[in-house]
Nucleic acid binder design. Structure first.
Length: 285
DNA sequence: ACGGCTA
């Protein structure tokens, strides 16, 4: 039973525009990746197709890089110390669980949203070295890369370099159960950006940095123009970007002002975290 | 060629 609300116009499957389609075969399963767009925004539809079964999850556009991170996590972690993860995006929650049976290991990705049946896809780990998960991860990486091309050109800057730092510390944005009581600022992850050889990224002076907070990313770039030096701070959430330009002469004031709010918010918001990815229990024995 | 998954 298809839950399509509109019966008439356009083409049965909805008139959402397909921006990108990829398929992946893992063992006997076929996975379809469709990056699509409609007036409400972009999303990634991932379908698992077996001979008799099809199930689909819908990943909001700004969740694609989180999916990529999580698959990297499961690919790169040792079998015995992977945890279940949950990822909240907008109104949905995605559950990631590793399981194993006679057929082998698998990753269950389950989408729970209000007023829709839970849907699940199951990705086989693959025969050797999690190659099924790795292939899945690679597709996500390609889509994540390519999706930048659909952002209007004047919105692109140092985002391109952001992902390159992620090969090893895949858990970067997540709270792991081991570090539950670290710093009060634990939800703030600072990532290093790598200098790109690319010549189209020149305006920054090699000090581009990224902070990730929840689904937002803040890019810090030093630059200069005919008025002098400045720090540009760009907020990127989904495909939206906005920036402020701080003249270098005002940096110290800015810093002190932020410090002021750090102080007073300590008192007001103690114990509140902004994290949306949690490690929950159940290591696979 | 599978088939795992609380609906």
């Amino acid at each position: 039973m298809e839950g399509n609300s509109s019966g008439g116009g356009g083409g049965g499957g909805g008139n959402d525009v397909e921006l990108l389609c990829k398929t992946l075969q893992v063992e006997h399963k076929l996975f379809y990746f469709d990056l699509k767009e409609n007036p409400r925004g972009r999303y990634l539809k991932i379908s698992e197709k077996t001979s008799a079964t099809r199930s689909t999850i819908i990943v909001p556009f700004n969740g694609i890089s989180w999916f990529l991170d999580l698959f990297n996590y499961y690919v790169n972690s040792d079998d015995q110390d992977v945890f279940s993860k949950e990822l909240q995006l907008d109104t949905k929650v995605f559950y990631f669980d590793v399981g194993e049976n006679r057929r082998g290991r698998f990753l269950k990705v389950s989408e729970a949203s209000v007023s829709r049946n839970r849907s699940t896809i199951i990705v086989p780990a693959g025969s050797a070295r999690d190659d099924g998960w790795a292939a899945f991860r690679n597709i996500l990486a390609e889509i994540n890369e390519a999706s930048r091309l659909f952002i209007s050109p004047n919105q692109q800057t140092s985002e391109t370099s952001e992902r390159l730092g992620l090969s090893d510390d895949v858990g970067a944005g997540f709270i792991s159960s081991h570090s539950s009581q670290s710093a009060p600022t634990a939800d703030l992850t600072i990532e290093r950006t790598i200098d790109l050889p690319a010549a189209d990224e020149v305006s920054n002076l090699g000090v581009s940095k990224v902070i990730r907070v929840d689904q937002k990313r803040f890019f810090f770039d030093l630059g200069n123009n005919n008025r002098g030096h400045f720090l540009r701070i760009s907020e990127v959430a989904g495909s939206d970007r906005s920036s402020i330009i701080l003249p270098i002469s005002g940096l110290k004031q800015f810093y002190e002002m932020v410090g002021h709010f750090v102080e007073i918010s300590k008192d007001r918001f103690e114990g509140i975290t902004g994290a949306n990815v949690r490690t929950i229990d159940s290591p696979q024995r």
